[in-house]
Nucleic acid binder design. Structure first.
Lengths: 111, 111
DNA sequence: TAAATATGTTAGATAATCTAACGCAAATTT
DNA sequence: AAATTTGCGTTAGATTATCTAACATATTTA
């Protein structure tokens, strides 16, 4: 139950297929990587490998680009979203600690 | 709701990656295709493309081969399983027809 | 024993991907 | 307004990945 690596997150798709799936050119896909919006893995030989999650992300990126949002701005949004997720996780971890220690359910300081 | 093509069934993985995922050699994977156990799609250029479902199937095949079952036998098993599925589908379709026509729920001839 | 099975290996051809660089219009910043 | 950045297209040459076909071979199976 620790390895929740589902199909969606396995990096197994080459750039040509990703291009087909997203409608983006390979140039565009590589460029978005250069702008740190996406992070494929590599084969030993150096070919890029993407996940279905990456494909979805690329389509979101494509939408924003169409709306005139710059990669730089998209990147900031993504970092913001990531930070919020991290905060969530930390909050839950602390909650878990308290639960483990004191079995607190809903005290006056919980939220 | 007619297109229930999930990630699991999308043919997007090249043979090299499939080889990695399954531990089978590319030779073996192509051979099982020759024996009609698996049916990849092709890129316009002719490269094979597999799905995660294919990967799973290949691992089952590998297990049977290890157990000394021949491809010829495995193929018969698969056809049998497929036929059973078809029978199931037909049964349900007929049931659906009857339901639509007469609203039958559970008569003396149902089962 | 003749035929079929299940691969490994090799060879040459083609397809797919890679990096790096040049160019350029449009948008943004200074 | 001038300078810079953005978001690509395109090209070139190199490397990686995949393809088919054929030969070899040990092990079953008919």
């Amino acid at each position: 139950m620790a390895d929740e690596t589902t199909y969606k997150d396995k990096k197994v798709i080459t750039i040509g297929i990703v291009s087909e799936l997203t409608g983006l050119s390979e140039r565009q896909i590589r460029y978005y990587e250069e702008r740190k919006l996406i992070f494929p893995e590599r084969t030993p030989g150096g070919s890029r490998k993407y996940s279905f999650a990456d494909v979805e992300l690329l389509m979101e990126i494509a939408n924003k680009i169409e709306d005139g949002v710059q990669t730089h701005e998209i990147r900031k949004e993504m970092i913001r979203a990531q930070n919020n997720l991290n905060k969530e996780v930390k909050r839950k971890m602390i909650q878990g600690q308290l639960n483990a220690q004191f079995g607190i359910r809903n005290g006056p300081f919980s939220k």
